[in-house]
């Protein structure tokens, strides 16, 4: 079942076809097919364990790192199958950045965290304007004002909300095309959550953003398109207002009105 709310094929950034992922022969995703529009925010919602994270991690091939994970199907990034031979996962991940559910800054300074992705690319020309790039990433992540005077402080001294914005800054410093956010606000207080949501709004113009969230209001607030997954299957996918105000599927309605889950 292919659901695509996007009429214009030129707008498609990621195209997923028949994606099946299994952990140790236990399927976590089954036959997912969907299109993700460029420079829009797409939200994945669904009950715990339905496969949202798995789907997200498929976009940057992070599932490969799990020993017994098997993936079938096709994901095309700007028309190019990311699973085909010759695609270097490291290169792919520079294009598809990811922010994890739990903030995971490196045990290094704030500056070194943001500069990490740039440094490992090891082109010497980058070193010259590293300071600028770090600053601009921190500014775009709305963290600059809070940390400008203590860039050398350990990142682990930041608060949870600041850490989450730091790892977003770290991810966007390498200028990916796609940004994957896995429940970026699940562990945060309302004010930090608000900041992250504002941030997503700002980033939208430059990045294709996919966000996983548990929070219906949040999904409704930040996303342009929403996909509802359940038990490893894509149940419904469409423009956010449509999914939230007028869900086509019974399961979706039950879930968003809280009758299930």
């Amino acid at each position: 079942m292919l659901q695509t709310p996007i009429a214009d094929a030129a707008q498609i950034c990621l195209r997923v076809r028949g994606l099946t992922v299994a952990y140790a022969e236990e399927p976590a995703l089954q036959g997912i097919s969907l299109d993700i529009p460029r420079h829009q925010v797409t939200a994945f919602i669904g009950p715990s364990g339905c496969g949202k994270t798995t789907l997200l991690r498929s976009f940057n091939r992070m599932n490969e790192l799990i020993e017994d994970a098997r993936t079938e199907g096709v994901i095309e990034l700007e028309g190019c199958n990311i699973f085909q031979a010759g695609v270097d996962p490291a290169q792919l991940r520079r294009q598809v950045g990811m922010v994890f559910q739990r903030p995971n800054p490196f045990p290094k300074s704030i500056y070194d965290n943001v500069a990490y992705g740039l440094r490992i690319q090891s082109s010497s020309s980058r070193a010259a304007n590293l300071d600028q790039e770090v600053e601009s990433a921190l500014r775009r992540a709305a963290l600059w004002d809070e940390v400008a005077d203590r860039l050398d402080a350990p990142a682990l001294t930041l608060s949870g909300g600041q850490q989450q914005r730091l790892v977003i800054a770290r991810a966007i410093a390498v200028k990916p095309a796609v940004l994957l956010l896995d429940e970026p606000a699940s562990a945060l207080d309302p004010i930090s959550t608000l900041k992250i949501e504002q941030l997503i709004h700002q980033l939208k113009s430059n990045y294709t953003i996919i966000i996983v969230t548990h929070n219906m209001q949040q999904a409704a607030r930040v996303s342009d398109f929403t996909a509802f997954l359940n038990a490893g299957r894509l149940v419904e996918y469409g423009p956010a207002e449509a999914v939230f105000t007028n869900p086509k599927e019974r399961q979706t309605e039950d879930y968003i009105t809280g009758r299930r889950g």
Binding site: A90, F100, I120, V174
Partner: peptide
């Protein structure tokens, strides 16, 4: 060393070796 640190490094486009030398050994 928590796997989420290695994941963070790999997700930023680091190779295995870079991840080991710059994150895992450091930690």
């Amino acid at each position: 060393v928590p796997p989420h640190l290695a994941d963070a490094s790999l997700a930023l486009g680091a190779t295995r070796w870079q991840t080991v030398t710059r994150v895992i050994l450091l930690t």
